[in-house]
């Protein structure tokens, strides 16, 4: 299989000096530091095919950023191997980064005091982009990201949404084949999020750009990613298509029933009551063993039902479930 990114047994070790409280503790840790080794990334392997949009998700401190930084050549791994477009970012950084576009949602690479276009001109020279190719590319980016309204505005006067669009355009100027987005929608309003998601879909469709996305916004993941990799405590805990992960993690569904009048016997052999509030009852059932309509049929024979609704499990629940079950690994 053809791959863009190939990661094998990746480990990044940090040395942490344990501090004790108080002045006595400070002096003690100065003289006899208690150093402990800690693997921020602990044996990760995966490969990504060209044209995939992969959501790389996990709780804070799970090792997401560290992995991205090793993939892009910023950090050196303690062990393991990385190949991006067949090249190791550690031995040939300059060759690899030409093929990469990287956006850090919380930091900008644009010059604060200057109009947006000036930062683009600098990047044109840094990446040695041919003038006609640059003009064409910029025209396309301007069109899709709607930069024309603010390309001559100083970056410090841009709204967060505009700045993010500027940053994404800056990362795409040299037509990279892989785009890393580290929390690209953080702090943005619904409109700006929508624009950025559309852009990601568009470049993936029209140029076949591979996208690796870290985010805490699971709507991003649901709308964009065909595949997610979930990490926790430096290890991959799930890797696969989003639908099957949800299915696997949340085999339960919920049926909410509202009654006319109180009823004593609520039990049914097909589902369990997990919550009751006045006349409202929550039933949990396995979707493998009974369908919703069968359950409703069974319940309606014994209960005076007024209203009924089925709750679908969503990504958020699934992910929270993963974080919870892998937290103490």
């Amino acid at each position: 299989m053809e791959t863009v990114i190939e990661v094998k047994d990746l480990v990044k070790e940090y040395i942490i000096v344990k501090k004790e409280s108080g002045l006595r503790g400070s002096i003690k840790s100065l003289l006899f530091p208690k150093k402990t080794k800690f693997n921020g990334v602990n044996g990760i392997s995966f490969s990504i095919a060209p044209g995939e949009i992969v959501g790389y998700i996990g709780p804070n401190g799970a090792g997401k950023s560290t992995t991205i930084k090793m993939l892009t050549g910023i950090l050196h791994p303690t062990a393991g191997s990385i190949k991006v477009c067949g090249i190791s970012p550690q031995t040939d950084r300059k060759a690899v980064v030409r093929k990469l576009g990287v956006v850090f949602g919380q930091r900008t690479q644009l010059y604060w005091d200057l109009r947006l276009g000036e930062s683009f001109e600098l990047l044109r020279r840094i990446y040695q982009i041919d003038k006609t190719a640059y003009d064409e590319n910029l025209a396309v980016l301007t069109d899709v990201l709607k930069l024309q309204d603010f390309i001559d505005t100083p970056v410090r006067q841009l709204s967060l949404g505009q700045r993010m669009r500027g940053d994404i355009a800056a990362a795409m100027l040299h037509s990279p084949s892989v785009l890393f987005l580290d929390e690209p929608t953080i702090g943005l309003d619904a409109d700006a999020k929508h624009a950025i998601r559309n852009f990601i879909k568009e470049i993936n469709r029209s140029r076949g750009v591979t996208v690796i996305l870290t985010t805490h916004d699971l709507d991003d993941v649901e709308q964009l990613c065909s595949r997610i990799i979930v990490v926790n405590n430096g290890k991959i805990v799930e890797d696969g298509p989003i639908g099957s992960i949800i299915h696997k993690l949340t085999p339960h569904r919920m049926l909410v029933v509202e009654l006319h009048e109180p009823c004593n016997d609520l039990t049914t052999p097909h589902a369990t009551v997990i919550k009751q509030e006045g006349l409202k009852i929550w039933y949990q059932f396995e979707k493998e063993s009974i369908t919703a309509s069968e359950l409703i049929a069974a319940l309606s024979q014994k209960l005076p039902i007024q209203d009924i609704s089925v709750m679908e499990p969503n990504v958020e629940d699934a992910i929270r479930e993963v974080y919870k079950t892998t937290a103490t690994v």
């Binding site: 930084k69 910023i74 060759a95 980064v97 990469l100 990287v102 850090f104 840094i126």
Partner: peptide, 12 residues
């Protein structure tokens, strides 16, 4: 503050 990140991402 991690200011070298951006420099390391450029082919220079």
């Amino acid at each position: 503050n991690g200011g070298f990140d951006r420099l390391l991402l450029r082919p220079m």
